[in-house]
């Protein structure tokens, strides 16, 4: 168990964002927006909530975090480096030939990655499989799955939503990173997906909402999810894409965009 207080978590979240910006670098493309929108949620999970053992990454009763939105790989890499699971030096080799940090996460190459995601819509099903298997083993392990709001366009998300409620798994928590943007435009313009909590509730889930950038509230909502029985929990986390990098906040072009030298310097300065 690795637990931290709120101000320390806020400090870690800032460092994670700095790592993300460094990996995006200057003049190279990188998924800045969605990585930053998930950063606070990931920080609370990795540094406070997940039951794990530093010396045994494969501990069978560990809690799992599945990033279904695999394009937020930079957020995972940034956190894994802060946890000491991967060497910080690896961050400089992201998306390079022979590196362990692929454009989308590869559990075969990178320790601490729990599943290969990146083709959107599959992570919730994978998480459900983990949840069912862990229940069968009477393991206390809990499974957390971060899903993008754009990702909910994928029909498979709803197949999984239906099945998770059918099987009444209460060791599964889906967190929807509701940043209102997808790859090329606002979610409302590409494919409307409003009232996400009501949709999950209609499928039979318990639903909760949270400010996805308020560390204290994220802790509270995750603790509340622990108490739900006989059904899975969906937390709709209201977020801002690019959060923490002021000029990129809410801007679709930073989904997988490049930073100029000036932008890079400004981003780093804002995260010191």
């Amino acid at each position: 168990m690795n637990s931290m207080n709120v101000s320390n978590l806020e400090r870690v979240a800032k460092q994670i964002r700095r790592n993300i910006v460094e990996m995006v670098g200057i003049g190279k493309a990188g998924h800045l927006g969605g990585s930053c929108s998930s950063a606070d949620i990931a920080t609370v999970l990795y540094f406070h909530k997940l039951r794990r053992k530093d010396d045994d990454l494969c501990w069978s009763d560990r809690d799992r975090l599945i990033f279904s939105k695999g394009h937020a790989a930079l957020c995972q890499y940034a956190a894994l480096a802060e946890l000491g699971i991967i060497d910080r030096a690896e961050l400089t080799r992201v998306k390079t030939l022979g590196g362990i940090l692929q454009g989308h996460p590869d559990m075969v190459r990178c320790p601490g990655i729990e599943a290969n995601t990146g083709s959107l819509g599959q992570g919730l099903s994978i998480s459900l499989g983990l949840a069912l298997a862990k229940r069968l083993d009477k393991s206390p392990a809990r499974i957390y799955c971060i899903i993008g709001d754009g990702e909910l366009n994928e029909g498979q998300c709803w197949e999984a939503a239906m099945a998770a409620a059918h099987y009444k798994v209460d060791n599964l928590v889906a967190i929807i990173d509701r940043n209102h943007l997808q790859a090329t435009d606002e979610t409302s313009k590409i494919m409307s997906c409003d009232r996400i909590d009501e949709k999950f509730r209609a499928f039979g889930w318990e639903t909760l909402t949270v400010d996805g950038h308020n560390i204290e509230q994220i802790i509270e909502v995750l603790d509340k999810a622990d108490t739900v029985e006989e059904k899975p929990v969906a937390i709709v986390a209201e977020t801002v894409k690019g959060k923490g990098v002021s000029f990129a906040e809410g801007k679709v072009q930073y989904h997988n965009g490049t930073l100029t030298k000036d932008e890079y310097d400004e981003a780093i300065a804002g995260l010191l």
Binding site: S60, R64, E114, A115, G121, Q122, S125, I126, S127, L128, G129, L130, A131, L132, A133, K134, D137, G155, Q156, E159, A160, M162, A163, H166
Partner: peptide, 17 residues
């Protein structure tokens, strides 16, 4: 149920466990 995509990915999760 009639959901082969979910079927395979759930199997993936089970294999991970």
């Amino acid at each position: 149920g009639i959901a082969e995509q979910n079927l395979m990915s759930v199997a993936a999760g089970m294999a991970l466990a």
